[in-house]
Amino acid sequence: MNKTKYLLVSFLIGLTSVWTGCGGGGTDNTGENSSGSTAGKVSKGVIAYSPLTLSNPFFKVIGDSLSAAAKEHGYETTMLDPNEDVKTQSDQIDDVIAKQVTAIVLVPCNRISIGPAIKAANKAGIPVFTVDAQCAAEGVEIISHVGTDNFQGGELAGKAMIEALGENGGKVLVLDHKIANSCVLRVQGFKKVLEPHLKSGKIKIVAELPSGGNRTDSYKATADQLQAHSDLAGVFAINDPGALGAYTAIEEAGRQESIKIIGFDGQKEGKIAIKEGKVYADPIQFPRKMGVQIVEKIVSHLAGEEVEKTVLIPTSLYKKADAEKDPELQ
């Protein structure tokens, strides 16, 4: 009997300590995750931010700049991490609706399945904004979207590819990610710029393979294509992990001198690779601007102003010379 009691008590203590642990975690995180109200100023409300995942630095940067800008306007920010799962994201939206937040900012984990959750927020009267990726579900009300002009970014990538291949042109591999609409647009922009060269046969796209948006899949796809085409001259990957995965395969084959890589995003790892000459160029996105602009949209919506439905921030091309001047990489 005594032993059982002892066990039960230790189980309880275990679980309660788990709870205290996470309660503590919550308080510890407030500094980082939610910008508390400034002294003497009462918080005007909470903005909930739910990106694909916070483990991708890109979304973390958007979140940090969003939370800093929100703080200036007197709002707190709660950052949620659905870990790329739309069910988790829906559940989290339900949670913050119950919490009666002021506004919800989403990067939809699935452009269609997230619809009903957004409708629930609409029904509760909580304004919903999207950032980076848009929602394609029917009958939902999105106050405003702030994202990257991915088609324009693709065009820049195409220009960079033409420049990198030079006079002779050559065979190009495209590493795409068709699940994400943003990546589809990048490839479309890329192909549009390449079109005259594709027609003349100077440049040839030998394959468009799924990159999974990650290093592993891109590495495998590139390694296979290196076997198939001994004269491959260029790779366009729809993001930085894709470009770096491709580089690993090319380096393994010892062909980094003859194959030029164009990436996308301009994450820190991508910028470093550009500085080291592993990647030729990246059209870079501006996550900080996105965070700031989405807060501007929220604030003007709450002030009763009409806001633009869609704001697309153009990318700019980032090459080795830019990387050498970049204070972020010093």
Binding site: N33, T53, D91, K99
Partner: peptide, 9 residues
Amino acid sequence: GMNLTGVEA
């Protein structure tokens, strides 16, 4: 509870 208190993923 962890979502309400903002514990990260």
